[in-house]
Design a protein around this nucleic acid. Structure first.
Length: 739
RNA sequence: GCUGCUGUAGCUCAGUGGUAGAGCGCCGCCUUGGUAAGGCGGAGGUCGUGGGUUCAACCCCCACCAGCAGCUCCA
């Protein structure tokens, strides 16, 4: 007989086999009707599930007011949607249909692909299903029977899933709703009638099991709530968020533009955006000088040789702009060399290679038809020979090379002599050269080099998005060269710097992610003692600073553990901004040294850090955060002077000149419009302050100040207003409410 | 890169197999008006690019480019 204790402290004993629903009914009819699911010993379960035998079960009944219920509802609604789709599109294969924070989706594979035009029909069918309020009935089958059941239903993806992953379990659960049966762990709402409101949102592609080499399915996104009112509020919120989208505001306020002619993913900062960025950069530069950084400058390109040494080339080459060579054949030979050096590949790696070669536009005659790994190497070598012949090139020792490995080596030797360049993918190798430019003693450490360094990465076309995902961006990059003993202090200082930056800008909705190495993986460089110590310090620092953080194994960079600041944007997406990373790899690769107190050579440790991350991405997030209404210290235009009529033009010009002389970014609107229109224009441009001048002001030699948002600060001498501006500037006052 | 959708004036968008429209913005004139739109007039478009079908294409078909939603990726 289950004995149950409830959240209010009371307890009850129920007959054997009683369910949470029985428990609810025992408490009250209304509760039983309102109940959605139950939390039994911390696990959300169906109301209808019999409570386990045992003493002191902790049970909490969930109603539509509990956040957990919404997930249950959405998961059930995913079933309802799948049922509707299967009815309308017979033969549809079902994959996964989980609940999300904002809704749910179901991945399907339909013989006739769905289109958005089909949404009304699907929604109509769903409404019919919900109207019938049929219960969700759970049942279990031992695995072989379960497999036979889904096989019999023709659900091939589910069969595959059982064979590959679920098969280990002894039995599997199903939910039946009328004619519709779906393999599912549950839990579910008691019956379909609980779905108060839903809406199909969008259609997208998604790979089966998230693997880009597998088939692509259709993903139907939708959302569901207990009431229409909540759904309406949700949709309204989406509309509001769209208005804050930095791509929209960036265009409206002339902050930045992206021109297809200049290049996709390459941000062009317009004067107003550039001004904001300049202020941000100065803000950080001041901070860096205060904390002992040395600003440096390095170029936008570097020799391939340097990136071969650092390992960035060719390791990340599918995400890089192509290398620059003088010799016309070098680009093609470089790709062939890359292919030859990779050797004989298994199927999965060969798929990646084929994709890469395709993207790099290298056509190797016969490659696609080659059936064995060896043949692929042979046709590649044929192409090399052809290239050498056409270009009349003789590479020393290539002809004599006895096998592919040697040929690849010889080709590489030649390529290394070709003086190729790469658009800078990272700033660190350049900074390392600065470190190496002179001998360093332990007394010089930490050496802290900082630069707003622009880097280029060839992101996939589908990834490009506004300022947040681009192909050229400027990192507020810094590299610290420290002794092992200094690591912890420097890490702490930099974590505090990121905190300071985010706090100053009012970005408080973020989490800290500590990325540690995956246990038992061999992809990491550096001694495990170093790693242990580094990982411990990261956790210690972060927890000592009282930040909310998550520790994620396997999220470390291959060269060291890291701390990322992940900020949430206005529509709930998360973006990695600031980062602090430890690196044992590059000091080794570049053979960095300093002379210790013992007069012996020691290897420094490197810390990479970027408080903003990328200026482009940070700006994008900031635009959304402030909805374009920047605080006074950042606003591209701080004050707009408005004349009541053109009679006051002269006075307005004097006011404007005085503001500018005081360092205020001000302009005057001297046009023929009425004040109302001028106010509206300035308001839409989100300018923090407007000052109105007319007869009254001219007489008294004052200005009348209006704050963004509409507050009237009244008439005052210009000096008073300047004092107010100066204070806001110095204190970096944030807007009271983000407009 | 993949799936689906989109591309018409500076911006937001309407439109039809028969030579292109609105609002806002811009320019000019009138008005000189006190806190979110005064009035009138005007200029402005190779309908994303390149092919094809057709007597005729902004519209139909194909390719490419770019954008949007999502997937995969992100040193």
């Amino acid at each position: 007989m289950p004995s149950v204790s409830l959240p209010d402290g009371s307890s009850r004993v129920l007959p054997t086999g009683a369910s949470s629903f029985d428990l609810a009914e025992g408490i009250g009819k209304r509760l039983a009707q309102a109940a959605i699911a139950a939390v039994v010993n911390g696990v959300v379960t169906d109301l209808s599930l019999p409570l386990p035998e045992g003493a002191d079960l902790k049970v909490r009944l969930l109603t539509d007011r509990d956040p957990e219920s919404l997930l249950v509802l959405r998961h059930s609604c995913a079933h309802i949607m799948a049922r509707a789709v299967v009815r309308l599109f017979p033969g549809t294969q079902l994959a996964f249909g989980p609940a999300l924070e904002t809704g749910f989706y179901y991945d399907i594979d339909s013989p006739t692909p769905l289109r958005e035009e089909d949404f009304p029909r699907i929604e109509g069918e769903m409404r019919r299903i919900i109207g019938q309020s049929e219960p969700f009935e759970r049942f279990e089958r031992v695995t072989p029977e379960a497999r036979a059941l889904v096989d019999g239903m023709g659900q091939k993806l589910k069969v595959e899933h059982i064979d590959q992953e679920l098969g280990k379990q002894g039995s599997l659960s199903f939910y039946r709703q009328g004619e519709f049966i779906d393999l599912c762990r549950g839990p579910h709402i008691p019956h379909a009638g609980k779905v108060g409101a839903f809406k199909l949102m969008s259609l997208a592609g998604a790979y089966w099991k998230g693997d880009s080499s597998r088939q692509q399915l259709q993903r139907l996104y939708a959302t569901a709530f207990f009431t229409q009112k909540e759904l309406d509020a949700h949709l309204r919120q989406i509309e509001e968020a769209k208005k804050r989208d930095h791509r929209l505001i960036g265009k409206q306020l002339h902050l930045f533009t992206i021109s297809p002619l200049a290049g996709a993913g390459l941000v062009l900062w317009m004067p107003r955006g550039a001004l904001v960025r300049g202020v941000l950069e100065q803000f950080l530069r001041d901070e860096l000088v205060r904390t002992g950084y040395s600003p440096v400058y390095t170029p936008h390109v570097g020799r391939l040789e340097m990136y071969r040494t650092s390992g960035h080339f060719p390791y990340y080459r599918d995400a890089q702009f192509p290398p620059l060579y003088h010799h016309p054949a070098a680009g093609a030979l470089d790709l062939c060399q890359y292919r030859l050096a990779a050797g004989e590949l298994d199927e999965a790696r060969e798929r990646d290679m084929a994709l890469f070669l395709d993207q790099a536009k290298l056509v190797i005659p016969g490659y696609a038809e080659a059936t064995t790994p060896l043949l692929r190497l042979q046709v590649t070598e044929n192409l090399v020979n052809e290239l050498l012949r056409v270009h009349g090139l003789e590479i020393p020792h290539y002809a004599e090379a006895g096998n592919t490995v040697v040929r690849a080596r010889v080709l590489l030797d030649w390529l290394e002599q070709q003086d190729g360049y790469l658009l800078k993918p990272m700033n660190c190798p350049h900074h390392i050269q600065i470190y190496k430019a002179m001998p360093r003693s332990y007394r010089d450490l930490p050496v802290r080099l900082a630069e707003f360094g622009t880097v280029y990465r060839f992101e996939q076309t589908g990834e490009l998005s506004g300022m947040t995902r681009v192909r050229g961006f400027t990192q507020d990059d810094g590299h610290l060269f420290v002794t092992p003993e200094q690591v912890e202090d420097e890490l702490r200082a930099n974590v505090e710097l990121v905190q300071f930056v985010l706090r100053t800008l009012g970005l408080t909705d973020y989490r800290v992610r500590i990325g540690l190495r995956a246990k038992g993986s061999d992809k990491y460089v550096g001694g495990s003692d170093d790693w242990d110590r580094a990982e411990e310090s990261l956790v210690r620092i972060v927890s000592a600073l009282g930040m909310t953080y998550t520790v994620e194994e396997g999220e470390a960079a291959f060269y060291g553990p890291k701390i990322d600041f992940v900020v949430r944007d206005c529509i709930g997406r998360e973006w990695q901004l600031g980062t602090v990373q430890l690196d044992y790899n590059l000091p080794k690769r570049f053979d960095l040294e300093y002379t210790g107190a013992d007069n012996k050579a020691h290897r420094p440790v490197m810390i990479h850090r970027a408080p903003f991350g990328s200026m482009e991405r940070f700006m994008g997030i900031l635009i959304e955060h402030f909805a374009g209404a920047f605080p006074v210290w950042l606003a591209p235009e701080q004050v707009r002077v408005l004349t009541v009529s053109e009679k006051f033009t002269e006075y307005a010009k004097t006011v404007e000149a005085k503001l500018r002389a005081a360092g205020v970014r001000a302009t005057a609107d001297l046009g023929p419009d009425k004040v109302g229109a001028k106010v509206r224009t300035a308001a839409m441009e989100k300018i923090p302050y407007m000052v109105v001048v007319g007869d009254k002001e001219v007489q008294a030699g004052t200005v009348t100040v209006r704050e963004r948002g509409g507050a009237d600060l009244g008439n005052m001498p210009l000096e008073d207003f300047l004092r107010r501006l100066d204070q806001e500037n110095r204190e970096r006052t944030l807007p009271k409410t983000a407009v």
